[in-house]
C-alpha cells in the first residue's frame, strides 16, 4: 500500500527525474534487448568471417573478429556454387508462394472478417466458430490429407496448390473481424445503408478505407507464416529444385561437414558456419523488410486507431 502511495506521489516528476522504478524499467528493458539482439548480431556477423582449415570459427561473447567484405563475398560464392546456384531458385519459389499466399489471404480475409463483425446472416455464428477452430488447429494436422488431395488432382510439385493452401488464413479473418468490430462504428454502416449503398458497396466504400491497420496485420502475419512454412512445402514440393528456401536451408545444414561428415564427403561445395550464417541472413532479408515496413504501420496505426476510436 505504501508502495503505491509513493509511486503516485512521484508521478508528477516522473517525466524528468530518474526514479528507482524508472531506472528499473529502463534497465530491465535494455537487458532484455541485449539478450535478444546479441545472438542475432553475432550470427549475422558470422557471415563476414572465415573458418580455419579444420572448418572451425572461434567463439566467445565478443566473437566478432576477422570480419571483412571479402569473406562475405567468398561465403556468398560458396553458397551460390552449391548445386549450381539452386539457392536462387529456392528464394524465387519462396517469394512466389509467400507473396501469392499473402495476397490471397488479404483478399479473402478482409471481406469475411467485415461480414462476421458487422452483418447478420444465417450461419454467422457457425462460420465464426469454424474460423476460430481452424485457426487453432495445427496446420500440420492437415498436411498429410492435403498431400493426398493435391496429388489426386496432379498438383504435387507445382507452386499454385501451395499458394491456395497458404491463402486459407483464418487468423487473418479473425484479425480483420476484431479490427472492424472495434474500430468501425455500427452507425457508420447503417448510415451508408440508409444512403442506399448495397452491402458490398458499404464494405468497399466505408470499411475498406479504414482497414489499413487490418491489412497491415494480415500481410505481416501471413507473409511471415508463409515464408517460414516448412512442413507444407516439404510434402507438396518433393524435388529439391521445386523447394522453398526453408527446405533449402535444411538441405544446406544437412550437407554441412559440421554436422554430417560422411554425407558431405562427396560434395564439392563444403558449407561451414560462415556460409550457413550468410545463407540464413539472405533468407531472412524479405521477412526483415516486412518487419521494418510494418513496424511503423502496426505501432502508429494502433495508437492512431485508439485515439480516433
Amino acid at each position: 500500500m505504501s508502495n503505491s502511495r509513493k509511486s503516485s506521489g512521484s508521478r508528477h516528476a516522473a517525466t524528468s527525474r530518474w526514479t528507482p522504478s524508472r531506472a528499473g524499467r529502463v534497465g530491465t528493458m535494455s537487458a532484455a534487448a541485449f539478450i535478444f539482439a546479441v545472438p542475432i548480431l553475432t550470427f549475422i556477423l558470422m557471415g563476414f568471417r572465415q573458418e580455419n582449415s579444420t572448418g572451425q570459427v572461434p567463439g566467445g561473447i565478443f566473437s566478432i573478429l576477422g570480419l571483412s567484405l571479402e569473406n562475405a563475398k567468398r561465403n556468398l560464392d560458396v553458397v551460390m556454387s552449391y548445386n549450381h546456384g539452386i539457392f536462387v531458385t529456392w528464394m524465387q519459389n519462396s517469394l512466389i508462394v509467400g507473396v501469392g499466399g499473402t495476397l490471397l489471404a488479404v483478399l479473402t480475409a478482409l471481406p469475411a472478417g467485415y461480414a462476421l463483425a458487422k452483418l447478420r446472416f444465417n450461419g454467422r455464428r457457425v462460420l465464426r466458430f469454424i474460423t476460430l477452430l481452424t485457426m487453432v488447429m495445427p496446420n500440420t494436422v492437415l498436411v498429410i490429407p492435403l498431400f493426398l488431395e493435391v496429388s489426386a488432382i496432379g498438383g504435387i510439385g507445382k507452386l499454385w496448390p501451395v499458394i491456395v493452401i497458404m491463402g486459407f488464413y483464418p487468423f487473418g479473418v479473425y484479425l480483420s473481424y476484431i479490427h472492424f468490430l472495434t474500430t468501425l462504428p455500427r452507425e457508420l454502416v447503417e448510415a451508408a445503408r440508409l444512403d442506399g449503398l448495397s452491402e458490398v458497396m458499404v464494405f468497399l466504400r466505408i470499411a475498406l478505407p479504414v482497414s489499413k491497420q487490418a491489412v497491415a496485420l494480415v500481410i505481416f502475419f501471413s507473409f511471415v507464416a508463409n515464408w517460414t512454412n516448412y512442413f507444407l512445402p516439404l510434402v507438396l514440393l518433393p524435388l529439391s529444385e521445386q523447394g522453398t528456401v526453408t527446405l533449402g536451408l535444411q538441405q544446406l545444414i544437412g550437407s554441412s561437414p559440421l554436422f554430417d561428415p560422411t554425407m558431405s564427403a562427396g560434395l564439392t561445395t563444403k558449407l561451414y558456419m560462415p556460409q550457413l550464417a550468410l545463407a540464413t541472413t539472405i533468407m531472412i532479408v524479405p521477412v526483415l523488410a516486412v518487419f521494418i515496413g510494418a513496424q511503423r504501420f502496426l505501432m502508429r496505426g494502433a495508437v492512431v486507431g485508439a485515439v480516433k476510436g
Binding site: L104, Y114, A115, F121, L142, G167, F168, P170, E199, V202
Partner: peptide, 18 residues
C-alpha cells in the same frame, strides 16, 4: 446476400484447404 458474397471467397478456401 451481401454477407454471402463477402464471405464466399474465404468459405471456398475453407472448404478446399480445411
Amino acid at each position: 446476400r451481401g454477407a454471402a458474397i463477402l464471405v464466399m471467397p474465404f468459405v471456398l478456401l475453407l472448404i478446399v484447404a480445411g
